[in-house]
Design a binder for these strands. Structure first.
Lengths: 212, 212
DNA sequence: AACCCCTTACGTCTTTAAACGTAGGCAAAC
DNA sequence: GTTTGCCTACGTTTAAAGACGTAAGGGGTT
């Protein structure tokens, strides 16, 4: 039986180690390597060339999107599967554009992860069922959508607002200054003609920027 | 042709007078009387016994729900039609329970109002199409609902939060102290396990407390 | 080269929200 | 007839949001 090597890129040590243990229970996994951010991963790519990479999106130093772009530039046939807690549109579309061949949510089952690996090794793309549903829903919503005038960054900030994050929190996850997030929020209020957070969230829900 | 008398109970003078003019264009309307709150209306019920009453819900002194209850207690066959800006569930279910025979939104057409009058005079109930849709939607949502543990008052406050009102605003429309609304909000945060307004709004959307 | 748009960022001030605690009145349930 | 749950309400303190204004730097367009 052919065995495969896997590279986990994730800043959450606990998650990384848990997934490593899970993967090691599979008899066709030969080795599991780890990195805690994009830079570390890219640096060790020359030494360790994995069959599959699981890539987190939100990471310090260098996030999953930039890392994927760079890695695919260096090794175009690298099999990268995005691993994210959130299935929001910004994330999966950007990861796919960057060259990822799969997208799996962190609340998926090991079975999902296995499916993703099998498909990707077979040269196919893979997105988990949940993401697939969201994609289909978002296509329906796009039909009569009126939020094109929000920039990508604004939608991203809005998404995190809906998650209940404060501006400081958002600044932390996006690696920005809090004052920048303040400004994005201010612009969002103006653009969506809202008075406060409640209005922003309602707008996001109505326009499919967050899933209900 | 039989002619009918109408009583408008609404604290918004401008709206009352506009509707009065509209109704007077109908040749089967004999007279339109007015009151600016529930107490005034009840006091004059002995003098003026209208065929139809249009009752606002949010009013100072005595709101539409309490007024309807009292009026129906005094004159069980009174035809009361609720007139509200909002079609939220708290409102229409409570008005119907109180004895109202119709529910029309303030953004309806005169045709809607005429339909409501015709149906109610005919002994039927009437809710405008929009409310009917919401009722049907809310039945679907009720299937897997988990927000029974929010009290009616809490749901009402949450509804207004979603409308973008501040606590002071909500206190004004519900005729409460701001500090009371503060407390309801605090309890909502605790009960729904939310950190902030965004979480509350998302909860409300998920559980059908507001319509999208 | 000049332009527009987006992203990033800072300063200051006012208003709201959030996080504690406490407590009386009231109606329904037991 | 006491308990229980809900609605009402106040005081204080800290954190966050909201409302202005300003501006540098990057990327793409014309």
């Amino acid at each position: 039986m052919k065995k495969y090597t896997v590279f986990l890129v994730d800043d959450h040590k606990l998650f990384r180690e848990g997934l490593k243990l899970l993967l090691e229970t599979l008899n066709y996994i030969e080795a599991v390597w780890e990195a805690e951010n994009g830079k570390q991963f890219l640096a060790s790519l020359n030494l360790h060339k994995p069959d599959i990479v699981f890539m987190d999106i939100e990471m310090p130093e260098m996030d999953g999107i930039a890392t994927t772009e760079k890695a695919i530039e260096l090794f175009p046939d690298l099999n990268i599967i995005a691993l994210s807690i959130y299935g929001n549109e910004n994330y999966y579309t950007r990861m796919i554009k960057a060259g990822a061949k799969g997208f799996v949510l962190k609340n998926s089952s090991l079975q999902d992860v296995e499916n993703a690996m099998a498909n990707v090794l077979n040269g196919d793309n893979y997105v988990s069922q949940e993401i697939l549903n969201r994609l289909i829903n978002s296509i329906d919503k796009k039909k009569n959508l009126n939020s094109d005038f929000l920039t990508e960054r604004e939608k991203e900030v809005l998404f995190h607002i809906c998650r209940g994050l404060s501006n400081q929190d958002i600044a932390n996850v996006l690696y920005l200054s809090k004052r920048t997030v303040d400004k994005h929020r201010e612009n969002l209020l103006f653009k969506t003609d809202s008075k406060n957070t409640a209005g922003l969230v309602m707008y996001a829900v109505k326009n499919g920027i967050v899933d209900i």
